[in-house]
C-alpha cells in the first residue's frame, strides 16, 4: 500500500524537481528576466488535479527550497506559492472544467498575484527594482502553460493507466 502510494507520487515529485532545475539553469542575461515561473505552474497544475495530496503544505516547503536556491529572503517564495496554491485548491473544481482560454486567463491572474507578493515583500525589505521587470515571467509562464499542462496531462494519464 505504502509503496504503491510512493510509486504514484514519484512522477509528481520528479516534475517538481525538474521545475526547480529549470529555474536554476543558467540563461543568457537578456533571457533571465523572461524565465518562466516553472515551479509555480507545476504546483498549480498538481494542486488543481490532486488537491488532497499536493496542497499548501507541499507548496510552502517547495517555496522554501526556491528561496534557498535563489538566495531571496527566507519565506518570500514560500508565502507567495502557498497563497497561489491555496486559491487553486479552494477553486480546483471550477478551474478544472474551465475551457483552455479561460484557464489560461486564470493562470495569468494567479501568476500576476504571485509576482505581486514577491514585489511587495521586496519593497518592504527595501530591495527596489522597476515594477516592469516583474511582468516578464508572468507573460512567458502564461504562454508556456498550455504546453506544460499537456505534458503533465500525459504523465498523469500514463501513471494512472499503469496502476
Amino acid at each position: 500500500m505504502a509503496s504503491e502510494r510512493a510509486a504514484r507520487r514519484m512522477p509528481v515529485i520528479l516534475c517538481i524537481v525538474a521545475a526547480l532545475m529549470l529555474t536554476m539553469a543558467p540563461l543568457p542575461d537578456w533571457a533571465d528576466s523572461f524565465r518562466p515561473n516553472w515551479v509555480v505552474i507545476t504546483m498549480i497544475y498538481w494542486a488543481m488535479l490532486l488537491p488532497r495530496t499536493y496542497s499548501v503544505g507541499t507548496a510552502w516547503v517547495v517555496g522554501l527550497v526556491l528561496d534557498v536556491a535563489q538566495g531571496t529572503l527566507f519565506g518570500q517564495h514560500a508565502l507567495a506559492l502557498a497563497l497561489v496554491v491555496y486559491i487553486t485548491v479552494k477553486f480546483h473544481l471550477q478551474i478544472r472544467v474551465f475551457p483552455i482560454s479561460q484557464m489560461t486567463a486564470t493562470i495569468f491572474a494567479m501568476l500576476a498575484l504571485y509576482q505581486f507578493v514577491l514585489f511587495w515583500i521586496n519593497g518592504v525589505a527595501g530591495i527596489n527594482s522597476p515594477a516592469v521587470a516583474y511582468w516578464g515571467p508572468v507573460l512567458t509562464s502564461t504562454v508556456f502553460w498550455p504546453f506544460v499542462s499537456a505534458i503533465f496531462g500525459n504523465i498523469r494519464y500514463r501513471v494512472h493507466s499503469r496502476s
Binding site: 499548501v56 527566507f74 519565506g75 514560500a78 508565502l79 502557498a82 491555496y86
Partner: peptide
C-alpha cells in the same frame, strides 16, 4: 482546515521573513 493551514503557514512565512531580514 485548508484555510486554517494556509493562515498558519502565512504567519510562519512572515515570521521567517522578519527574522531573516
Amino acid at each position: 482546515a485548508l484555510g486554517l493551514r494556509f493562515l498558519l503557514l502565512a504567519a510562519l512565512s512572515i515570521a521567517l521573513l522578519v527574522v531573516d531580514h
